[in-house]
Structure formats: C-alpha cells, structure tokens
Design a protein around this nucleic acid. Sequence first.
DNA 1: CACTGATAGTTTACGACGTAAGGAATCAAC
DNA 2: GTTGATTCCTTACGTCGTAAACTATCAGTG
Lengths: 272, 272
Amino acid sequence: MVVFAGQGDPRRSLTLLWRADASPPPRGGPGPRARLSVDAIVAAAVELADEKGMAALSMRAVGDRLGHTAMALYTHVPGKSELLDLMHDSVHAELPRHYPESDDWREALTTWAHEVLEFYVRHPWVLQVSQARPVLGPHEYAGLDTLVALLRATGLAAGTLRRLVGTLFPFVRGAAQAVADARLAAAATGSSDEEWWAVRSAALTELVPDFAERFPAVSRLEAEGPVDPYPGPGGDADPVPFPEREARETFRVGLGVLLDGIEAAVAAREAG
Amino acid sequence: MVVFAGQGDPRRSLTLLWRADASPPPRGGPGPRARLSVDAIVAAAVELADEKGMAALSMRAVGDRLGHTAMALYTHVPGKSELLDLMHDSVHAELPRHYPESDDWREALTTWAHEVLEFYVRHPWVLQVSQARPVLGPHEYAGLDTLVALLRATGLAAGTLRRLVGTLFPFVRGAAQAVADARLAAAATGSSDEEWWAVRSAALTELVPDFAERFPAVSRLEAEGPVDPYPGPGGDADPVPFPEREARETFRVGLGVLLDGIEAAVAAREAG
DNA sequence: CACTGATAGTTTACGACGTAAGGAATCAAC
DNA sequence: GTTGATTCCTTACGTCGTAAACTATCAGTG
C-alpha cells in the first residue's frame, strides 16, 4: 500500500514541518507537563517503520512504543498523514549535503547517487510514501539543493537541470526499490532466494511448457547467463545474496548510462 | 499504501495467473451455476481501481460492483493479494507487443517508452503494487519479452541487456508516477495547480523567510524559469496543465539522456 | 490557600477493512 | 426423489484511523 500524506490543513502541516529544528517550545502554561513531544513521536514512528516496515506502522503501535495510547499522539500530531509527512522529512536529514570540491561533476554525482541509494535502503518505507502533492519539508529541500548544486557543475541550462533532477531522483528511487525488494524477497517466507525461485520455476515449467516459444527473447537472455559486467569498479567477493547483488549492479550500469548521456549533452552544448 | 501481492500459495496463484486465457472451464458439475467468474471479478476490480484508485479497492466494493457480497469473491479467488496479482497481470496485456521492423533501435525504444508511459498513466494503481516477489504472469512476461527483443537490436551483451531492462522499466515507471501525481494533485481538493501552490508558497515564504539563503541552488533554479526545452519533437500548444506537461517533458529529456548513454555504450562496443 | 480553566492523556465507540466459519440455496448425477 | 457438491450469504472477529467525552494535572488568580 502506498500511504498518502499531507491531506490535512496545509498551514498546520507546514508549521509542524518547518518548526525551528531546535525549538520544542518548553512553554510552561497551565495543564500537566507533556510527557510526549512531536520529535519523540516522529522518532518512534521512524524506528518502527525501519524495523517492521510500513505495514506495521499504526497509531496504536507508535503509541505503544512510547508507553502511551494511540489517542495520545493526536494531541501533538493532527493525524497519521501528517505524522507520515514528518517522518518523511525527518529521515531526509540523512541525505548528503556536501558541495562539490572538485570540478569532476561525474564523480560527484556518482558518489551522491550511491549515498542516496544507501539512504533509501536504510529506510525503504520512504519509497512507499506517495509523492503526490510533495511534502515540502526543510530536509527534503536541502537534499534537493545538494543535487541541484552538483548538477550546476555540468554547465547545462536551467531547464535541462530541472529535468535532470526529475530524472536522477526517481532513478535512484527505482534502484533502491529493487534492492529493497530483493531483500524483502530473501527475508519473506524464510525461504532462500534459490528455494523461492525453485518452487516458482518448477511450477512454471509445468504449467507453461511452451515458455520458450512464447517468450523467445526472455528465454534467450536467461540462457546466456549473467556475464559481461559493465565497466566499473571491480567488485570483491562479497556475501551479498544474488538478487541484491544483481539489483546493485543494475544500479551501477544504469547510473553509468545516465551519466554518459549527460556527458553527451554537455559535449553537445560545449560544441554547439 | 503499497499493496503487497502474492503472499499465498504459489501454486494456486500461478495456476490462476496462467490459466489458459480462453479456458474459463464451463464445467457442468453439481451445484448452482456460477454467476461470477474470475475474469468478471478481475475486470470489475480493474475498473474500480482505474476509476477510484487503489485506496477504494476493497473486497466489498468489488463485490458491490458485481451485485454480490464481498465473501462471494472468495469462491473464485483465494484472497485480496491474489486478486491484485491477477489484476496486475491482466492489465499488462495492454503493453506493446510488436517487434522491431526497422533497424533503428533508438526510434523503436522511444516509441516503446511512450506507449508504456501511457499504459501506466491509464492504470496508475499498477505503480502501487509492490514489485517484491514478482508476480510472473503471462502478460508481464510478454511485455518484458518485447523490451528485450527491442534491446537486442543494439547488439550489446546479454549481461548489459539485462541491466538495461532493469533500468528502462523503472525509469518509465518513475516518469509515469510523476505524471500520475501531477494529475492527482490537480484533482485533489478541487483546487487548481496555481491555487494549491499559492497557498503553500505563501505559507512557506512566511514561515521560512530565509529560504533563499538556506537553499541557494534551488532558489537560483526557480528564478531562472522553465526555459530551454530539450531538443525533441516540437510540441503544439495543448491544454495539459503545467505540472503534467513538465512531468512529460522530464520524461522526454530523461529518455533522451538514457538513449544517448546507450548509444555511447553501443559505440564503445563497436569501437573496442 | 482554594479555585479556575487550559492542557495531556485515557476510555469508549464508530464505521471501515480482510476474511474465517457456518448455513442456505441450487442443481447434476444417481 | 434423494444425495452431495458447489455457490453465495450471514454473521462474527480482530484490525485500522479517529471522533467524542472523560479524567487527571498543573499555572495563575483570588
């Protein structure tokens, strides 16, 4: 399920999002001292989502984790949508925020992409937060700002830059999704990758004997095996299971292709 | 919410998925004649998801649409997960399935990408079906087969092809997501794009007066305006609202960059 | 000091959801 | 005509987000 965020009052949401990061107003008004806070709630919710996944994120579960009821949260947060907005922006504080020191924009973008990939892999639930009506939080803007700054070094025009941003971010998200899915598949049902595929492919070859004729291109590709590593940093032997390794390799290749394409655009601009 | 599919018995799921497309076994056994069928259920569910979105897709709603109760569906379909699998594969029958007639793989891939984009835009809920543990349905395989066949024309090695498949499909999905989100944003709250943004940006400039200093790169980019259309087929004036037009333009630019990158790989292979 | 009234958190409840369990209606085969 | 498989419905359970009403806790006021 994709969870939609930000349906509520935009003013309230934005105020919560942009509340000065170090201003949890410890106002001493009347009434009992607050034992809960927005930050504590968001932190607990993020922990929960990281550990158990988006499906396990319920108001009751977040409340439990804090030793309170679900309804206690509603004093501090308007609803689940807004909590999601806050979680979303909160983790985006981990996005890289360093400006290029070298002039090698290609290397800088490569580093950036890998760091963002790891970010999404650390918080795969972020990929399930709908992007419709963007949340516009401070940390997301900061992450965006970094990428724009890195892309500036290419010298391309503003319009192109904007579209490259719109291409690179989804690309990394897609790759992260693939890695996260690979991990999920490995963890699910306790069965190993091989076992999972074995059950499926056995059933498949039985149910679809004419597979090779119906899908010649795919069949041929599968027969040719996973050779021809794309030119990239030589990988050491690692204990990463095959599907995830393949997803990461796809990421590297795709990124290389994208950067080659950007390079072509830069060359064209410099030439013409 | 991202809905997970395919948790149930893999045999049962696969049998349903690959049941010969024209074999709704009209077996005459004992018992009342079935007034429902897997195909009718899947069709109704797809209609519902197309019209009202994934969030509105409940077993009760699908049953209602067919003049039955929710529980009636369980005679034909093991559960919601499997129904989602079937819906997912069912719509993938719309994916392009033509093999290249010309040798111009670039043109063929461009056409392919645009057709797939339109497919996703027609059925945006497909983008919310989790890709973990792929569904392995016949129509998905067919769509995959087409892309592989198109990519073959580049002459690249099998390993590279596999990774390009893993790059191109998510790229189109990401672009479709952006278009779908743009439409959703336009439809939501009944407010126009301008109004939506006006409320937000008014609140933003009030809440964050130092925006320009905190996010210099983004600010500069916004100041430079949406100029510099990427070289592509010149667009006529159209009534498509701005955010969607921008999303589609991003798609065109991103695709161009990707294809430039593939071209570079092809050139490198032919040279070396 | 007692009292007032705002605030934090709990309890209870409602209508949605997916689906398990059991019952009623229907019909081919004997 | 009876049997028994099959389709579909009814009811019910435990989950969810959250509205409404309640209680408990305190700063400020007299």
